[in-house]
Computed example of a mutant assay.
Amino acid sequence: MKKILLALSLLVSAALPAADETKPVTYEGQITGVVCASCKAHITAALTQKLTDVVSVDVKAGDTPDTQKLIVVANNSDITKETATEALGTYAKNYQILSLAKK
């Protein structure tokens, strides 16, 4: 009987996800001022280094020629437009994050 209970408890615990596993959150928004690969590299480095648990940052062509699409994937559900703008530091004078929201 003890062996059966032990086996059942192991099966149940193996089926449950670990408590410290976090599911990545995708944020999408718009940013202006990105005109070249160096601009993209500056944004990527600043957001990756200064925001907690950022997995990736991508800047793609936007709907209009003056705006680009900003995509941030992070194991952090607390990123906002304001925290991302703050993370840009001195680059915030060159690049303006217009919006950023969880997808």
Rank of each mutant, 00 (worst) to 15 (best):
K81W: 05
V57N: 01
E28F: 07
K103W: 04
V25N: 06
M1Y: 11
K2T: 11
T64I: 15
I4Q: 11
T80S: 15
A101R: 08
K23E: 13
V57H: 04
I79A: 06
N75V: 00
L11D: 08
K40A: 15
N75F: 08
A41C: 11
A92D: 06
L8P: 01
S9R: 06
K93A: 14
T90H: 08
A101Y: 03
D58P: 00
L47F: 00
S99G: 04
N94C: 11
G29M: 07
C39W: 10
T80E: 09
P24V: 01
I31K: 01
V73F: 07
T44H: 09
S13Y: 03
D58C: 05
L16H: 02
T22K: 12
G89N: 11
G29V: 05
L98A: 07
L51N: 01
I71C: 09
L10N: 04
K69F: 07
A84Y: 01
A41S: 14
V73M: 11
V55H: 03
L88S: 07
T22P: 00
S13W: 03
N76K: 07
V59I: 14
K3P: 00
S13K: 00
Q68P: 00
V72H: 01
K102L: 05
K2Q: 11
V73Q: 11
A19I: 03
I97P: 00
I4V: 15
L70M: 10
A74M: 05
A87S: 06
Q30N: 12
N94D: 15
A14E: 07
V34F: 06
L100T: 00
A87D: 03
K69L: 12
Q49Y: 04
K40I: 13
A45K: 13
E21T: 09
C36W: 11
S38H: 13
H42M: 10
